Amino acid sequence: MDVLIHAVVGLHIVGIGALLGGFMTQMKAMGKGEARMVPAMLHGALTMLVTGVALVGLHQAQDDTLNSLKLGIKLALLVVILGLVYVKRDDEKVPAPVFGAVGALTMVNIFIAVMWV
């Protein structure tokens, strides 16, 4: 079971890499007011959602103790990120505050995952 959990964690990290990488590629355009939500951002956020839910299920199957507050906050942040990316995915230009919010919420989600034990 540990091998499966580690594989799903790896896929979760791939998802965060796609989301954050897509954001980083558009940062220069954000400064010009021409940023857009690239498909990698949507796919990364969806990958994070699916693998995150799978990880919770796998840990519950092992009777591991889970921090429900931490998981709830991370899920809420991801739902907001996913909502913003999904709604703005077809726009040619996304306002800088909206685009910046996606990047900031992504970073907050990463720091919660890493620093909240």
Rank of each mutant, 00 (worst) to 15 (best):
M107Q: 12
A40G: 13
L66N: 06
V102N: 07
D64Y: 05
L82D: 04
M48W: 04
G100R: 12
A29F: 09
I16W: 03
R89M: 06
M48Y: 02
S68D: 12
V50Q: 01
G44Q: 10
V114C: 02
A7W: 08
M27D: 04
D91M: 11
K28Q: 15
A35K: 08
M1V: 13
L55E: 14
M107L: 15
G21D: 04
L84D: 04
V38G: 05
Q60G: 01
V14P: 02
V50C: 00
A18H: 06
T65L: 09
M37T: 13
M30K: 15
A40W: 14
L42P: 03
H43V: 14
A45W: 07
L66Y: 04
K88H: 13
F23K: 04
L78M: 12
E34A: 13
A61Y: 15
G52E: 02
T65A: 10
L77D: 09
T51V: 08
I16E: 07
H43P: 00
V79H: 06
I110N: 06
A29E: 15
G31H: 12
Y86W: 15
R89V: 01
G52L: 02
M30V: 15
E92K: 12
V94E: 04
G17R: 04
V117F: 11
M24P: 01
L82S: 07
I81W: 01
D90N: 08
Q62C: 01
P97E: 02
I81F: 02
A7C: 07
L77C: 05
E34R: 13
G22C: 00
I112D: 13
L42K: 09
V9R: 07
Y86L: 13
G83N: 06
A7G: 10
H59Q: 14
E34S: 12
S68H: 10
I73A: 08
H6P: 04
M41A: 02
A113Y: 14
I5S: 04
A96M: 02
V9A: 00
V3C: 07
D90G: 00
Q60D: 14
K70V: 11
P95G: 00
N67T: 03
G31P: 11
L66A: 01
H12S: 01
A104S: 06
V117T: 08
K88F: 10
L55G: 09
L82H: 08
D63Y: 03
A113H: 09
G21P: 09
D2P: 05
P95F: 02
L20T: 09
P39W: 10
H6K: 14
A45P: 12
G22N: 05
I112L: 15
K88W: 08
N67Q: 09
F23H: 11
G103E: 07
A76Y: 00
A7M: 11
M107T: 15
A61W: 15
G52F: 00
M1P: 12
G15T: 07
V94Y: 05
D63C: 01
I13Y: 03
V102M: 08
M107G: 14
G22H: 09
A54D: 12
H12R: 06
V102H: 04
M37P: 05
L20H: 07
L78D: 03
L58Y: 11
A104N: 00
L11R: 03
Q60L: 15
L46E: 06
V114R: 02
K74I: 10
M30T: 15
G83W: 03
L75C: 01
